[in-house]
């Protein structure tokens, strides 16, 4: 009995002696929060399934119109039924989800890269560099970006997925830049940065090798939440008809069939699965993001 006590104590001491790394803290947080763990596993399995199955589906074959199967009900031939063109809903769901997630991923990557770079640099240097960029950021925040994205999408003559990603990225780096700037502003006034400056370290080294790692947890959280937001925005734009080109399946396009009252009321299998999938993706990614955010802040940690 007493031996056991001693044993656990020494283990505790061992654990205490080195502070847990960022990754360990995140794992502990997920172990403690069952719902976050469930979201993470569910998300992982869903994404894996979508990306594997999507490889076996031929997009041209899938998007071929076959009037005989118009509004086929869920059953043997089509697992989730078919839309008004007789195209399989389940196939469109999988390809659509893959497209939405890929687009959101690239947009997150591009906006993250620009936003973090701009935020770190303006926050570190301050002064006139900060002033100029803040004017630009202020401008971007006050323009109705959703409308301008829609106008741009209709304007561009040769419109593909790549253009769509760039149009979205143009307007979405601003939020990240503003957040990172405010964090970098306080971080840059810390003693270790001053010490590093006195030793003659180059500015780029200080910014990207010293300040950025110290902000990494915030950056990860921001990117995760942005990812969820981008999935929502992409599907939303496709829903309005200004996202992916019509020949490319998208979750938003599937949901937009519900604009027809007949489909909304009676052909639930056309739009409901896509809506629920979007809902699940958004909730799960956000929940995972919240859990990481909590683990980044010692005061909010559960585990």
């Amino acid at each position: 009995m007493s031996e056991q006590l001693v044993n656990t104590k020494s283990q505790n001491e061992y654990a205490m002696s080195s502070p847990p790394s960022g990754f360990q803290v995140i794992i502990r947080e997920f172990k403690k929060d069952k719902l976050a763990m469930f979201s993470l596993v569910g998300l992982f399995v869903t994404l894996l399934a979508i990306f594997i199955v999507a490889n076996f589906i031929d997009q041209d074959q899938l998007m071929k119109v076959s009037p005989r199967d118009k509004f086929a009900e869920p059953g043997e031939k089509f697992f989730f039924g078919a839309d008004q063109g007789g195209r399989s809903i389940s196939g469109q769901l999988i390809l659509g989800a893959r497209n939405s997630i890929t687009i959101a991923f690239f947009v997150t990557l591009i906006t993250g890269f620009i936003g973090i770079a701009v935020g770190l640099i303006t926050g570190y240097f301050g002064g006139w560099i900060d002033n100029i960029f803040m004017r630009i950021i202020d401008f971007f925040i006050t323009i109705p970006s959703l409308m301008i994205i829609i106008v741009l999408v209709t304007m561009i003559p040769k419109y593909t997925v790549t253009e769509f990603i760039f149009i979205m990225s143009t307007f979405l780096w601003v939020g990240t830049a503003r957040l990172v700037r405010s964090k970098s502003l306080t971080e840059s006034r810390r003693d270790y940065v001053n010490a590093s400056k006195t030793m003659g370290t180059r500015d780029t080294t200080i910014i990207f090798k010293e300040i950025m790692p110290n902000l990494s947890s915030i950056l990860i959280v921001e990117m995760t939440l942005n990812f969820a937001g981008n999935v929502g925005l992409e599907t939303g734009l496709s829903y309005l008809g200004f996202g992916l080109p019509p020949s490319v399946p998208s979750l938003g396009t599937l949901v937009s069939y519900a604009n027809n009252p007949l489909i909304l009321e009676e052909k639930w299998w056309v739009w409901l699965p896509a809506s629920l999938l979007i809902l699940f993706l958004m909730l799960a990614i956000n929940y995972v993001g919240q859990a990481i955010r909590r683990s980044a802040d010692a005061k909010q940690r559960l585990g």
């Binding site: 599907t235 309005l240 009321e265 809506s275 979007i278 909730l283």
Partner: peptide
């Protein structure tokens, strides 16, 4: 508040329209 933050406008709108409207 978390769920309402995560749901996209058009999904909730459609579900409400489907449920309460139709």
């Amino acid at each position: 508040s978390f769920v309402s933050y995560a749901i996209p406008t058009f999904v909730l709108g459609l579900i409400f329209l489907f449920l309460f409207g139709y």
